[in-house]
Amino acid sequence: MYLPNWMHKLASPPHFFRISGWLAPWLLWPAVALIALGFYAGLVLAPADYQQGDGFRIIYVHVPSAYLSTLIYGLMAAAAAVGLIWRMKLAYAVAAAAAPIGAWFTFLALVTGAIWGKPMWGTFWEWDPRLTSELILLFLYLGFMSLRTSFEEPTKGDRAAGLLAVVGVVNLPIIHYSVIWWSSIHQGPTIKKLDAPSITWEMAWPLLTLILGFTLFFAGLLLQRVQAEVLERERNARWVTEIMRPGIEGG
């Protein structure tokens, strides 16, 4: 399988290890700034919603985490597919690093969605199609992580979990639309779907800031975790023993 040259260069673990080393802080600090700005804007500057009052502010944390939970699963499946096709150890490292972060954001989306449901529906848990899909997504993440760690040989765990992620990502839309059909046949006339209300620009820009902030945060976090995964997978490589020699504070 032919690979463009720059991908080869980026794909070489030591090269990627050095890049992620200095790039991670450059992603994390702007992310923290954006998130701080987004929180402030979302809580204070944005006007209250005429229907839900201030309750709607929860979308500022719920929507970014829900968006990231799906994005990260897609990225994880893509990395796993690259790993399986081109046998690139780095791709497996990216998939293994992305999984826990994705699981955390899915959990966050679930919790914030449930808390948002309390004022809206009066109960913490409502089998709303989106929340149900998030719950299933969490199971897919947990399945990936537990399968990967149930093999002694890391390469075997990577390949098995990677295949599961690819099968999972193909199934995700099917599961999502089945859940939507399933909830639609119970549709009472007065359903209150978990919809972001019609959103004006004053409400929208904090949301976009937070989505960008969360994404940069994920990217920085991912690079850090990928460093750990790369070190573990390349533990026998010469470049690892080089930078790990006592007295050298490298990497």
């Binding site: 929180f39 839900q52 201030d54 309750g55 502010r57 929860i58 808390i115 309390k118 945060f217």
Partner: peptide, 18 residues
Amino acid sequence: GGYAPYVWSTFGITLVVL
């Protein structure tokens, strides 16, 4: 309004998770 506990708890949990 009456939503303070819900809004603050979601933002709090988000910070903790991050």
